[in-house]
Design a protein around this nucleic acid. Structure first.
Lengths: 238, 238
DNA sequence: AAGTGGTCTAGACCACGCG
DNA sequence: GCGTGGTCTAGACCACTTT
């Protein structure tokens, strides 16, 4: 474990335990240098982590303070997909997948644009319904380039695609761009999510990238309006 | 302008102009030190900015590379609210506000929890319809503590609350937590957003904080499903 | 083995807030 | 004016990838 991470962890715990009370000032950076036997740059790196996490803020010329709402920021609970950190949220719940469609074909124009592939490349076209505790929660329509993620089969689909990518293919995730909208249910939604015409769906259209920026998933997921929601945390950088 | 920001800007432009082609390797950090006449730490800070922005990624022992999708991440265009960066997106369009409700009262239990105020404090209770180019786009229900944001009046409401907070009260924004859901339209939505019972609304429930973590806004906004959407960009930190 | 990025140090000067 | 955080330097060692 690196020094700056250890220092950040120690300070984080002190905030959580109330040793540094909410809205109080931290000791100045020189004092922290002495206490942790570290250079000022290392202290500053530790503090930057906690600032990014919403525990601290600092004012030049004044000091570093504990946020009034420290630790109140919650992680995602998008029930939508398998993006890292999401499947764990479903831990303890029984998740099942029904495969409605699984073919390999050439991409449409929109898929070429989103996945940066060529028109004569091959892509997977996958449609699944996900059930949690026996209830249908979401319909996922997933497009992935075969060249980037080889070896997908029904066995993989019924478990975790993301686990396969990370553990079997040894690839690292990079980032994700989402567009979230409310939509009227189409025929498929009404059939599998048991929607009436008045029950809206929450739609998430997203492109997921590997660490090097290669897009590997373009997907559209639809949730029953009463079985999901997306939490987002933004931080404003001054 | 600080040195590391200038260096980051120069490299960003080189990527945008194709001087550093997509997926190519950048010169190593020592070469960049010499070119920009800077220390390695300063170079590294510049690179970290661009990594955070999705232009670059680096692999220890190997090098720093241009992302395959560099610059393809787009900023927000949430039509929902006035959070910094959003009103500018509406620039050029005619935005009007109709005030449906504007009172001062004591907070409800949920508002006490979200805004960290006391039950005998006072809060503004504001309901507005926003029109863009004469079309109703969104209904906003906003709760703010009077003690944190004093001096709100109809004059302020018909312009930008956020501009007032930043420019008149001289406060800095810190962060925001949102929950996004799809909902059935209620009576008010149907009346002002001209929804039928089958037209869903996209609801954003959010708490906005000042730089020091003080919550200053708890709001619920509802968009017509065909007049809005939220874009979100996440980055996965390995 | 050579070269790369990641971490860390000790010390300096600057910009800002506050009394 | 003093103390704070913000930026920057020159140099060192380590961890990792590549050859």
């Amino acid at each position: 474990m690196h020094k700056y991470k250890r220092i950040a962890q120690t300070i984080r715990e002190r905030i959580q335990e109330g040793f540094y009370p909410l809205k109080s000032a931290l000791p100045d950076q020189m004092k922290l240098c002495k206490e942790f036997d570290a250079s000022r740059i290392t202290i500053k790196r530790a503090l930057e982590i906690l600032i990014e996490e919403g525990y601290l803020y600092s004012r030049q010329g004044s000091g570093t303070y504990v946020m009034k709402n420290a630790g109140s920021v919650n992680a995602f609970d998008s029930l939508a997909d398998e993006y890292p950190g999401v499947t764990e949220q479903l831990a303890g719940k029984e998740v099942e997948s029904e495969i409605l469609k699984f073919v390999i074909r050439n991409p449409l124009a929109k898929e070429v644009e989103k996945l940066l592939v060529e028109v004569d490349d091959f892509i997977y076209d996958i449609k699944r319904v996900r059930y949690v505790n026996g209830e249908s929660i979401v319909i996922e329509h997933t497009i992935m380039p075969v060249s980037v993620i080889p070896g997908i089969n029904k066995e993989v689909l019924s478990h975790s695609i993301y686990g396969y990518i990370r553990n079997e293919l040894n690839l690292s995730f990079g980032g994700i761009t989402r567009r979230i909208t409310a939509e009227k249910p189409d025929e498929l939604d009404r059939k599998y999510l048991l929607c009436t015409k008045e029950d809206p769906v929450l739609q998430v259209e997203q492109v997921v990238h590997l660490k090097d920026g290669t897009p590997f998933e373009y997907s559209i997921t639809k949730h029953r309006f009463d079985k999901g929601g997306i939490n987002v945390v933004d931080r404003y950088h001054n």
